[in-house]
Design a binder for these strands. Structure first.
Lengths: 239, 239
DNA sequence: ACCTGAACACCGTTCAAGT
DNA sequence: ACCTGAACACCGTTCAAGT
């Protein structure tokens, strides 16, 4: 039953013992690639050491010779994704506001490239630290250009990054780009004891069902605009 | 070995079969209370059906007569926590900005009351929906008072809530209120190829190690102030 | 050096049986 | 009606053995 022939282009080292000279080794990179494929397809809870080994055509225990455990696989995945951040170099004449927005969009794009990993990334302090170093530079550069003092720069970047992370959470758990919160919200508000949430009820009523359809892209831009306006206003107030 | 005596004030129904008249039943509420205790003490990964049953002095399968599965236990927990949102009624003379900030602080307090559940709450769309209805009213009320049109109100609330969620992620994974990102950040920046992140390096250098010590409370207030300023400025621009 | 097989100590949950 | 016991199909990981 056990065959030495590669099947479907995958690695074929089913035989026990050390691989022969020239035969492909199992490697950290190959393991992480296969793991990322699983996570992208079936989510983080689909990733098990046993299934990962199965996809690689290998005994579950073989993986442990290249990575110390499952936690290392996941954090390796996070590092891999952040190493792929693609920041677009801004044009020289662009104002700082546009640079800052472009940095935020690029960061969101990076997180969105692997939605199922986003929650993991965003909730791991080590990963966030990696992210700030990997993707933070354009944020800092834009705000330096705005003439903000160092402390204000850090505060602004943190606020933007927290917003993006929070936004990402909502987006990651929703497959489509549009989220129809109309019927659900109307139902919930109606279920409340009357008078509990009058302002919420008025706002929901004024918008109507169509107005409550939520577009992620538009929502992101709205939040971004609000925060950038805030930075701008705070800058002006400082003189 | 099996005793019918209650121990340590806990339920003592170790005996098989239907409980005798007057004997305390296992209940949804009792299960959720025990589950919340476990999560608060040992985190969400400490919560297993088997351990939960152990704490209740009961067979693991008994739980299934009151809740359909583990997912139901977790989502029951989320609902319980949000039902405890405590919103402070604002004074009548207070300006909308302060009302809005107070709403944000109350929401953060609610999430912080059970940090280990925060990630769960914040990443579950159903839970977020529950949250918006349970804790959203003061946000909407404050922004109505500011005279914003319905669409702008929704955008502002979403931005604030996303910021709070993102902020909560960083806070939930860090036990102490202060987070010393100085040494770590300096080390990482130094490890980069020179010239990769000049602005980041300059900002980190200007602040110094002491300036990079991160206080969660101050960080939250800074972000809040920035966003409220943004709402204010956008309102002014609209006329 | 690298890979495997059996085993250990866990999971959540189904299903039939007890009272 | 409510609770239990055994069993099923999983986990991640340790450890000794193969080549």
């Amino acid at each position: 039953m056990a065959s030495e022939v590669n099947e479907g282009g995958r690695r074929g080292a089913r035989r026990a013992g050390r691989p022969r000279a020239g035969e492909q080794h199992l490697s950290r990179a190959a393991i992480l690639d296969a793991a990322l494929e699983i996570v992208d397809r079936d989510g983080i809870e689909g990733l098990t050491m046993r299934r990962l080994a199965g996809d690689l055509g290998v005994n579950p225990m073989s993986i442990y010779h290249h990575l110390p455990g499952k936690a290392a696989v996941v954090s390796g995945l996070v590092d891999e994704v952040f190493s792929r951040v693609h920041v677009i170099a801004p044009g020289d004449g662009e104002p700082w506001q546009d640079r800052l927005k472009e940095a935020a969009r690029a960061y969101r794009r990076t997180l969105r490239a692997h939605r199922n990993l986003a929650l993991q990334i965003v909730s791991d302090p080590a990963a966030v630290s990696t992210a700030v170093v990997a993707a933070g530079e354009p944020f800092y550069a834009a705000l330096e250009r705005a003439g903000l003092p160092p402390r204000a720069i850090v505060e602004a970047v943190d606020t933007l990054v927290d917003f993006i992370h929070g936004f990402m959470l909502g987006e990651a758990s929703n497959p489509s780009g549009t989220f129809d919160l109309g019927p659900e919200l109307v139902r919930r508000v109606a279920a409340l004891p009357p008078g509990t949430a009058p302002a919420l009820a008025r706002v929901a009523g004024a918008l109507g069902e169509a107005g409550l359809r939520y577009e992620f892209d538009a929502g992101f831009e709205a939040g971004l605009a609000l925060i950038v306006t805030g930075i701008e206003a705070a800058r002006g107030a400082r003189g």
